[in-house]
Design a protein around this nucleic acid. Sequence first.
DNA 1: CATGAATGAGAGTTCATTCAT
DNA 2: AATGAATGAACTCTCATTCAT
Lengths: 203, 203, 203, 203
Amino acid sequence: MSQSQILQSLIAENLVSDPGGARGRLLTEAARLFREKGYERTTVRDLAAAVGIQSGSLFHHFRTKEEILKAVMVETIRLNTALMQAALEAADTNREKLRGLVRAELESINGQTGEAMAVLVFEWRSLSAASQVEVLELRDIYEKLWLDVLESLKNEGALEADPFVVRRMLTGALSWTVTWYKPERGGLTLGGLTDQVMAMMAL
Amino acid sequence: MSQSQILQSLIAENLVSDPGGARGRLLTEAARLFREKGYERTTVRDLAAAVGIQSGSLFHHFRTKEEILKAVMVETIRLNTALMQAALEAADTNREKLRGLVRAELESINGQTGEAMAVLVFEWRSLSAASQVEVLELRDIYEKLWLDVLESLKNEGALEADPFVVRRMLTGALSWTVTWYKPERGGLTLGGLTDQVMAMMAL
Amino acid sequence: MSQSQILQSLIAENLVSDPGGARGRLLTEAARLFREKGYERTTVRDLAAAVGIQSGSLFHHFRTKEEILKAVMVETIRLNTALMQAALEAADTNREKLRGLVRAELESINGQTGEAMAVLVFEWRSLSAASQVEVLELRDIYEKLWLDVLESLKNEGALEADPFVVRRMLTGALSWTVTWYKPERGGLTLGGLTDQVMAMMAL
Amino acid sequence: MSQSQILQSLIAENLVSDPGGARGRLLTEAARLFREKGYERTTVRDLAAAVGIQSGSLFHHFRTKEEILKAVMVETIRLNTALMQAALEAADTNREKLRGLVRAELESINGQTGEAMAVLVFEWRSLSAASQVEVLELRDIYEKLWLDVLESLKNEGALEADPFVVRRMLTGALSWTVTWYKPERGGLTLGGLTDQVMAMMAL
DNA sequence: CATGAATGAGAGTTCATTCAT
DNA sequence: AATGAATGAACTCTCATTCAT
């Protein structure tokens, strides 16, 4: 399944909003603004202006500004879980599975549709405690995909370090790329970046 | 030189503030609050209360709130540059030098005095463009220490990936530890964590 | 004529809305909400929800929120004028007529259908000046019923104080019962309450 | 003790604010506005403008708008309790004591300084449940003064009705005067009004 | 130096009202 | 009639900053 096919089926199941609809457009713009300026520095007037409505109209769709942040995170994690699963299915060996996950996460963070993943990582603190609990349940599923592959690699002897620690390090390393990786400058493609990550781990 | 000797000499040179003095106490508390709640969510009243003065009095020491953030960052980077240099001097091989840098940076981020390093990394966006330029000059010196070691390792054949990319990945991975590493829980010490990082890189 | 017969004939004359119809149901709910939370604190969404429609649909029945308040007041005063007239007709002496008015007004204010009377008294300030003029004309008729009886009592020597002042005092005293009189608690019935009022006036 | 002496001693004890000070001026203006337009219709900008400051500055003195309402009520009830006590002390017989209370409450409600008493009565619903509990404790003391006198009159045989009910009726009747009594129009003075109330009760 | 009252711009949110469907 | 998305003005409240004392 292609990336857009995955998106279509999630939309059909009402798990993520159609990016063409009013709600979806808002969440896309919100993700962009939250990543660009941070959640705190983004005002509801910014959000409204980005989709061409008045600030009061926002509250027709979301009860609070924080609910928008939560929606961005929930939909992002749903989409990315599906993307990671697709990446896993497309690979045969555990090494290839890890490469697939790294590549997919790099695409999520740096791709044109994927600013939301950076929001999930870097705006976590702005989410209320109550919402964090909700989103954490979804994150656990997502993280499990990674841990299974890393544990298999460890069992194969291809990985020496602790899978849990490795995943945390990769989370930091991969999401941090959003602050410095610019595909247009220099010749480093996302594929090349993926190779670098694997090489760094001697895999 | 011990960590505290390094601090003393930097204080003597007026490069960092004495943590016992008024300015130093404020910067310490500011670093703690900025890391805990984020720069935006920390009010100048919070800052003032943390050192037992009124908010208006803050402005006798710093012209703006942002100047406090900048001062935290500048002093942090000065201190950490010195700490990294000391780590390098204490090591013989390049592999040991890298281990020393990793260990020192983990200590900076997770140690009791080191919350400021996390601020440097995660509150960068809150710094004005003008201040970013200033701080970047200091960061370049700091980063050069890492790149030199990584390049030597690459030349030795111990490292396959690009030193520049590896450093960026390490920045993300190591600073991200602040969000999950808790020394008290579980047996993982900072030394153990350093070992894990080296093992992950097969070094 | 019974209370419900009076209501029926007013409905037939189009002077008050049928409580079973759409308009009547809305006015009943509006009266309840206005009394419970006050006019200002009651939103048009509250009003709409109370009758099971959307807020936008309200404006097919009333042009403004204030028009709803005015309608509540106008219909209330029409109904209560008729109720007072019936009370007067059922009594022989002036003393009995006064008791009948007191009893009827207490029922209006505290009875199950009568929350609107409290709205008339306590939300007066929320009515626009223009509407106040309109409603005042109806109130004058209503008040005249009271003043006639009180003046007769004065002429009989049963009342020492000024009828106008007495009526104002009674307005305050009787409508204030809505804030404290609870028929279920304690043994005080509306009849008993009426007796207390008459006793207080040594009548 | 004169009315102003009572006020002075309450100010000295920090039980009510000095009407000349910043806080006292605000509370005076707040009482006036709350009575005139109602609590809901009075904006914090109205309040600020009335004392010549910006709306933001209000929050230096009070944390919320509701806290202003509560302060108005608390100080009012403290002042009025003292005024009623003085009225009681100045009278010999129970009949004179009741007259004194009626006169004092009428003065409170209609006098130039006394708009706050009307606020206490008519804006009660706008007070949060938590604040209501606090203020109610003070009100109980106040009401006890009335009940003691009314019970004595009942025991003397001068009053037939139930003291509790009579007090509630008087609360409504006396506070309602704020809506219609205008000392300048017509010859009815506060003393005359007091006489009317006593006459109405055949006392 | 420190205070604390004051500022004023702007924040998130509410809500009566409109209007295309 | 009814819907529900949208409006836009107004709301309470926040907060970095100023300044007379």
